[in-house]
C-alpha cells in the first residue's frame, strides 16, 4: 500500500540531498602554466596568473578584447563571432576578417581553441558571464585573463588588455590619440551645443535606446553632444527597449539609427546585416511603424543610418574612435 508513497518520498529526498552539493560544487584548480619567460599579472577578478612576457598566440573571446588587441597592433590567432552576428563584428571586418573563428560569443568551442594553441586567452563579461566552469576549462588550455565586466569602462578594459599583453605604453598612446581626436572633433561640433542626439537600435519591429553607459553613449558624451531627456542617463548596460506606443520617447533633434539585423534576445540568429545597409533596410521598416514619421528627427530629415555593429554593440578603442569619425563625418 505504501510503496508508491515511499517512492515519491525517496524522490523528494534525493532532490533535497542534491541541493547542498549543487551549492558547494567547484572545479579543481590545477591550471595550464605558460612556458618560457613569464610575468605575473592580476585580472579584473583578482586572479593572479603567469602569462608570457611577449605573448605570440593570443585568442580573444569577446568584441572588446578583439578590438583592444587589434588597437595594439597584435593580430589574434583566433577569435569569436560578434554578438548577433555570424562573423567577426562587421566594423572590424577589414582588420579581423581573416582571423579564424573559434565559436560564438557566448559559446566558445574549447577544442577548437586548444587547436589554435594559444599562449594567452582574453575574455570579458560580454562573452563569458557568470560561468566559472567555462573559465576553468579555458585555463586548462592557456592562461585566461578576464579583462572586464559587461557594461564596464572601456578604457579600464583596454588598459587591462594591454597589461595582459605587456603593451602598456602603446596603450597610453592609443588612448591619447583618441583624446586628441575627440578634442579636435569637439571644435567642429560647437554649433550643435543646443541640440539633442538620440541613438536608436532597431530590432525586428521595435526600438531600443542606447543610453549613456554604452560605447556610443560615451562617445557622444566625450564629444559634448547632449542627449534627449529619456536617454540622458546611465542604463543597465544594455539598450533600453521602447514599446511602439511610446515611440515618441526616442525622438530628438538628431538620431543615429542602427540595427544588429533581425536578431533579438529570443532569436539571436535571425540574420540580417548589422552594417550600414542593414540600418538602411531597418529604417525603411521603421518608417512603416505608426508614429515614426511624426518624429521631429524624421520630419527634419535628421535620421542617420549607422553601422549597428559600431553603434549599438560593444567594443574598444577602435570602436570608440570610429564612432567619433562617424559623427564628425555626418555632422561636421
Amino acid at each position: 500500500m505504501t510503496a508508491p508513497r515511499r517512492a515519491a518520498r525517496t524522490a523528494l529526498a534525493v532532490l533535497a540531498l542534491l541541493i547542498p552539493p549543487a551549492l558547494a560544487a567547484c572545479g579543481d584548480t590545477s591550471t595550464s602554466v605558460a612556458a618560457g619567460e613569464t610575468r605575473t599579472v592580476v585580472d579584473v577578478e583578482g586572479t593572479e596568473m603567469e602569462v608570457p612576457v611577449d605573448p605570440q598566440r593570443v585568442v580573444t573571446l569577446s568584441e572588446p578584447t578583439l578590438d583592444g588587441v587589434l588597437a595594439l597592433g597584435v593580430t589574434p590567432v583566433g577569435t569569436v563571432s560578434g554578438r548577433g552576428q555570424s562573423s567577426v563584428p562587421s566594423y572590424l571586418a577589414d582588420e579581423a576578417g581573416e582571423i579564424p573563428l573559434l565559436g560564438g560569443v557566448a559559446a566558445p568551442n574549447y577544442e577548437k581553441i586548444a587547436n589554435a594553441d594559444p599562449d594567452l586567452i582574453l575574455v570579458d563579461g560580454t562573452s563569458i558571464n557568470n560561468n566559472p566552469e567555462a573559465i576553468g576549462v579555458l585555463r586548462k588550455i592557456a592562461p585566461t585573463f578576464y579583462t572586464g565586466y559587461a557594461g564596464g569602462d572601456w578604457r579600464a578594459n583596454f588598459e587591462l588588455v594591454a597589461e595582459a599583453l605587456n603593451e602598456k605604453e602603446p596603450a597610453t598612446a592609443v588612448l591619447a590619440e583618441y583624446d586628441a581626436k575627440v578634442a579636435e572633433a569637439k571644435k567642429d561640433l560647437t554649433s550643435y551645443a543646443d541640440d539633442t542626439f538620440s541613438v536608436v537600435r532597431w530590432q525586428g519591429s521595435s526600438a531600443a535606446m542606447i543610453l549613456k553607459e554604452l560605447p556610443a553613449g560615451m562617445a557622444l558624451s566625450d564629444l559634448g553632444l547632449q542627449r534627449p531627456g529619456p536617454q540622458d542617463k546611465r542604463g543597465r548596460g544594455h539598450s533600453e527597449p521602447v514599446s511602439l506606443e511610446n515611440i515618441a520617447t526616442i525622438d530628438a533633434d538628431y538620431m543615429f539609427f542602427g540595427t544588429l539585423g533581425g536578431s533579438s534576445n529570443a532569436n539571436p540568429d535571425a540574420g540580417g546585416a548589422a552594417d550600414l545597409t542593414g540600418a538602411q533596410q531597418a529604417l525603411a521598416q521603421a518608417e512603416e511603424v505608426p508614429g515614426f514619421s511624426t518624429l521631429a528627427a524624421y520630419r527634419t530629415g535628421h535620421i542617420y543610418p549607422v553601422d549597428g555593429s559600431l553603434w549599438t554593440s560593444t567594443g574598444g578603442p577602435i570602436l570608440m574612435s570610429r564612432i567619433v569619425d562617424n559623427v564628425t563625418g555626418i555632422l561636421a
Binding site: P21, A25, Y110
Partner: peptide, 30 residues
C-alpha cells in the same frame, strides 16, 4: 528575458536552447 540586460539575455537564450556544452564531472555525478 525582455527586461534583461543584453548579456544576461544572451546567457538566458543560450540556457533556454538546452545545451550540453561545459557539462563537467561535478554536475554529471550529481
Amino acid at each position: 528575458v525582455a527586461e534583461a540586460s543584453l548579456v544576461a539575455a544572451q546567457t538566458a537564450a543560450q540556457w533556454l536552447a538546452g545545451s550540453l556544452n561545459t557539462v563537467l564531472w561535478p554536475r554529471t555525478t550529481m
